[in-house]
Amino acid sequence: MLASLSLILLCQLAGEVITRGLGLPLPGPVLGLLLLLILLLARDRFSSIARGPLRNSGVETASKGLLKHLSLLFVPAGIGVVEKLDLLATHGLAIILILAVSVMVTLLATVLTFRLISRLFSEAP
Rank of each mutant, 00 (worst) to 15 (best):
Lys68Tyr: 06
Leu73Cys: 09
His91Arg: 13
Arg20Trp: 08
Gly21Phe: 02
Glu60Lys: 07
Ser63Phe: 14
Arg43Cys: 01
Val17Tyr: 05
Leu22Lys: 12
Leu70Tyr: 10
Ser71Pro: 00
Ala42Trp: 04
Ala77His: 07
Ala94Arg: 09
Ala100Met: 11
Thr106Arg: 13
Val105Gln: 09
Leu87Gly: 02
Lys68Ala: 12
Thr113Gln: 11
Thr19Gln: 01
Gly15Ser: 08
Leu54Glu: 14
Leu22Trp: 13
Phe114Arg: 14
Leu97Val: 11
Val103Gly: 00
Leu37Trp: 11
Thr113Pro: 00
Arg20Met: 06
Met104Arg: 11
Val30Tyr: 10
Leu40Cys: 04
Ala62Val: 03
Ala89His: 11
Gly21Cys: 08
Val105Phe: 11
Leu31Ile: 06
Leu112Pro: 00
Gly28Lys: 06
Ala109Pro: 00
Arg55Ile: 11
Ile96Asn: 03
Ser63Gln: 09
His69Val: 12
Ala94Ser: 13
Val111Thr: 09
Arg119Met: 10
Ala62Arg: 02
Asp44Leu: 04
Leu107Ser: 09
Gly92Asp: 06
Glu16Cys: 08
Leu108Ala: 14
Pro76Asn: 04
Leu31Asn: 06
Leu37Pro: 00
Gly92Met: 08
Phe46Gln: 05
His69Glu: 05
Leu72Ser: 09
Thr61Cys: 00
Leu73Asp: 00
Thr90Cys: 02
Pro76Cys: 04
Ile49Lys: 11
Thr61Gly: 02
Thr113Phe: 10
Ala109Leu: 14
Val111Ile: 14
Pro29Glu: 04
Thr90Asn: 08
Leu37Asn: 02
Glu60Gln: 12
Pro53Asn: 01
Ser47Pro: 00
Ser102Ile: 03
Leu24Pro: 05
Gly28Arg: 04
Leu112Gly: 01
Ala94Asp: 12
Lys64Phe: 10
Leu112Glu: 10
Pro27Cys: 01
Thr19Val: 15
Gly21Thr: 07
Ala62Thr: 06
Met104Asp: 03
Phe46Cys: 03
Leu33Asp: 02
Leu107Ala: 13
Leu88Lys: 01
Glu83Ala: 15
Arg45Gln: 07
Leu112Asp: 04
Leu99Thr: 12
Asp86Phe: 02
Arg43Asn: 07
Phe74Asn: 01
Val75Phe: 14
Ile38Glu: 05
Phe74Ile: 10
Thr110Gly: 05
Val30Asp: 03
Phe46Gly: 01
Gly78Phe: 13
Leu88Trp: 15
Pro53Lys: 13
Gly21Leu: 06
Glu16Ala: 06
Glu16Asp: 11
Gly58Gln: 08
Pro76Met: 05
Ala77Gly: 03
Leu41Asn: 09
Val17Phe: 09
Leu35Tyr: 03
Ser102Leu: 14
Thr106Pro: 00
Val101Asp: 01
Ala50Asp: 02
Leu97Cys: 10
Phe114Gln: 09
Leu40Gln: 15
Ile117His: 09
Leu24His: 03
Arg119Glu: 13
Asn56Arg: 13
Leu33Gly: 15
Leu54Gly: 14
Pro76Gln: 03
Phe74Val: 12
Val82Tyr: 14
Ser118Leu: 07
Ser57Tyr: 02
Gly15His: 09
Gly80Phe: 14
Ser48Pro: 00
